[in-house]
Design a protein around this nucleic acid. Structure first.
Length: 662
RNA sequence: GCUGCCGUGGCUCAGGGGUAGAGCACCCCCUUGGUAAGGGGGAGGUCGAGAGUUCGAAUCUCUCCGGCAGCACCA
């Protein structure tokens, strides 16, 4: 007897194994037709897979969005692979999972694919859908699978089958004469998949994600339940492209990058204004939160990096300078370089541009004898760091080689970890809110396999960190085994206006560095103790955070962040004098204002400043000059409002101050 | 770093073995116009760099550099 419990609690009994498809058909023809897969005790199963024991069963239709998309996309990956193998014989299949918004399939083929092949592949995929081939789940033995793929020349699949866990059924999915080793589940036929799919990009990817392995060719696609969803997705991509900070940065004249300084930013006046506003704001918040600010050297002798352990681990990613101290100052720079590189004596020193600030902060902590009374000591630095990032990793402001962290290290006792964590999370969420991010999640990463420190220390650190995070009332997503080697960490991920996630903040507990660099304080008991270091950042780096701000606001910054907060535009040159006077009044109130006295029509000026995303345009004509008013037009609005100059000033001032005005 | 694609005025792009094109931006002139492009004129490029093929290369080939996408990396 097989008893099937349905979601409404009703139970159906069968005297022999039954399939999900059969159950659906019994309930009704409409459901049978809509059924995609079934959920059996929480696991997705194919409709034709026999159920031979008592289970809870739910029929999954496309109303169950997450499950439906998962299955659809996985099917789509198979159809892609089948189409590719039909069109390009000799291509080997490997893996093809679903992703957040689609799927991909990794192929091995000597000749590279081209995006020009996409049209033909999509067409063939459509044909496979039209063929409406049944998709069948089959259980094979490991040897059979290996022999099958070996015979077909599918070396990757033949190799992979041996990696599958013992004791699990090995399933093959057959659609027509094409078979793939796959866990499933899949739709009953290729026709059920529909045609709301599109191939998107082509890229290289390493076999099993390891750069030591051969590289495969990955074809990305997207797939949805219907045309409408597909179209909406393509619109979202377009929207994200419009927000690209590299494009907006150029259009708004904020910054540029050029090859003579790869990975470093040339900030233009308006971009730097934005940067400085962020910095000024952060400095204000940190001061309020009891931090002290420091500044530490850019170039630091190798010896310190050796002690901290960075030299050994990250040497290849550090910018190293070599100097020969025996060279006299009178020699030309060229000579010094030559002498240094040719020199083998002991006068050559290696200095590294700091890739992080913590070892330097410990040096400051170590000056003089510290008392427990001074803890927690919160030491902040807007630390300029350099890291030699791999060329392929560079990306606009988001990933650079020279950046400035809003870094701080909190030297404290183990007992203070929890309260400091709580205080930090409160500060961070208040700051994110000021920048317009309401939503963020916290990821908790605990002990990795290779780590420093005793289990007791880890227990204590993890408990304190986790407890404090939970106390702050945020979602906590577990990230097991992903902690730093020196301690557990929290990662703060904020969600932007179009739903993208960005990891910005971090809080890491570190017992190792104070030990390595010999930081200590005198406790209440008169003995020397090791402090704990909390590494923490809120924005992460100013460069990246500004990139995120630009994309989040699509360039339309809230007034307090906007580099130019208002433009005064006279209608004719007769009002130039009044315009200057208005600008002067606003500037006196602390508003970043410009005048536009060019000999252009007002339409033209409005259009241009709107494109430049200036939050407020104040138009002044003869009437305004006469009455002492301004016609104020806000970015995004269609109308203007005539207000007395004093009112306009007051209103704009409040908004322009933003968090500074609190 | 790896794979693929791409490099033509400031920007967006067309062209393509026979001495470089458009629109916008820029400069000058006319126009002083009430809420998203007024009109006219002008200037601006050794077509990413180097080598090769050719009578002739921006165009074809190779090498390098850079950009983009993904992968790998991210203390």
């Amino acid at each position: 007897m097989v008893a099937i419990t349905l979601p409404d609690g009703s139970v159906r009994s069968y005297d022999k194994p039954v399939t999900g498809g059969e159950v659906a058909a019994e309930i009704g023809p409409g459901l049978a037709k809509a059924a995609m897969v079934v959920r059996v005790d929480g696991e997705l199963w194919d409709l034709d897979r026999p159920i031979d024991h008592d289970v809870e069963l739910a029929i999954v239709t496309d109303k169950d969005e997450a499950a439906a998309l998962e299955v659809l996309r996985h099917d789509c990956a198979h159809v892609l692979a089948m189409a590719v193998q039909e069109l390009f014989p000799g291509t080997q299949i490997t893996f093809g999972p679903s992703t957040d918004d689609g799927f991909y399939y990794d192929f091995h083929r000597e000749e590279p694919f081209s995006t020009e092949d996409f049209e033909a592949i999509e067409k063939r995929m459509g044909e496979i859908v039209d063929r409406n081939v049944p998709i069948q789940r089959e259980i094979w033995s490991r040897d059979e699978v290996a022999a099958y793929f070996k015979e077909k020349g599918e070396t990757f699949k033949a190799e992979w089958v041996w990696e599958l866990p013992e004791g699990e059924d090995i399933t093959m999915y057959r659609q027509g004469d094409w078979i793939d080793l796959c866990r499933g589940p899949h739709l009953p036929t290729t026709g059920r998949m529909g045609k709301a799919f599109k191939l998107m990009k082509l890229a290289g990817a390493y076999w099993r994600g390891d750069s030591r392995n051969p590289q495969l060719q990955r074809i990305y696609g997207t797939c949805w339940r219907n045309e409408k969803e597909l179209k909406a997705h393509l619109m979202r991509i377009e929207e994200a492209e419009k927000r690209d900070h590299r494009k907006l940065g150029r259009e708004m004249n904020l910054f540029h990058l050029q090859e003579e300084a790869r990975g470093s930013v040339f900030w233009h006046p308006k971009g730097w204004e934005l940067y400085r506003t962020c910095e000024r704001y952060m400095r204000m918040r940190l001061e309020e939160a009891g931090y002290v600010e420091v500044k530490t050297p850019q170039l630091v002798d190798r010896a310190l990096w050796e002690r901290s352990g960075h030299w050994e681990k990250f040497r290849d990613h550090m910018f190293i300078a070599e100097v020969d101290e025996s060279s006299s100052a009178s020699e030309s720079a060229e000579d010094i370089v030559e002498t240094a590189s040719a020199s083998t004596d002991g006068n050559v020193h290696h200095l590294a541009l700091k890739p992080m600030n913590c070892p330097c902060h410990v040096q400051i902590f170590r000056q003089g004898i510290k008392s427990y009374r001074e803890l927690p000591l919160r030491m902040a630095e807007f630390g300029s760091c350099h890291r030699y990032e791999p060329s392929g990793a560079l990306h606009g402001l988001m990933r650079v080689r020279a950046f400035t962290q809003d870094d701080a290290h909190i030297f404290c006792t183990e007992d203070q970890i929890e309260s400091e964590t709580k205080i930090f999370i409160d500060l961070l969420s208040s700051i994110y809110e000021d920048f317009g991010f309401e939503e963020f999640v916290i990821k908790f990463s605990d002990r990795p396999e290779t780590r420093a420190g005793s289990d007791e220390t880890w227990d204590k650190a993890e408990t304190a960190l986790k407890g404090a995070a939970l106390a702050a009332g945020a979602d906590l997503i577990m990230n097991p085994g992903e902690g730093a080697f020196y301690g557990p960490k929290l990662e703060f991920v904020l969600r932007d206006a179009i739903g993208r996630d960005w990891q910005c903040g971090t809080l890491q507990v570190d017992f190792v560095l104070p030990e390595r660099l010999d930081a200590e304080y005198v406790g209440e008991d008169g003995e020397r103790h090791r402090p704990v270091m909390l590494h923490r950042a809120i924005l992460g780096s100013f460069e990246r955070f500004i990139g995120i701000l630009i994309e989040n606001f699509a360039g339309r910054m809230p007034m307090w962040l906007a580099p130019v907060q208002a433009v005064v535009a006279p209608i004719t040159n007769d009002q130039d004098g009044y315009a200057e006077q208005v600008a002067k009044t606003l500037a006196k109130a602390g508003i970043r204002v410009e005048t536009d006295l060019r000999n252009e029509k007002i339409n033209y000026k409005i259009r241009e400043h709107s494109h430049a995303k200036v939050p407020a345009i104040l138009v002044v004509g003869a009437r305004e000059a006469e009455d002492g008013t301004v016609a104020m037009r806000r970015l995004g609005g269609k109308d203007q409002e005539i207000v007395a100059l004093q009112d306009a000033t007051d209103r704009l001032r409040d908004e322009a101050l933003g968090p500074f005005g609190r």
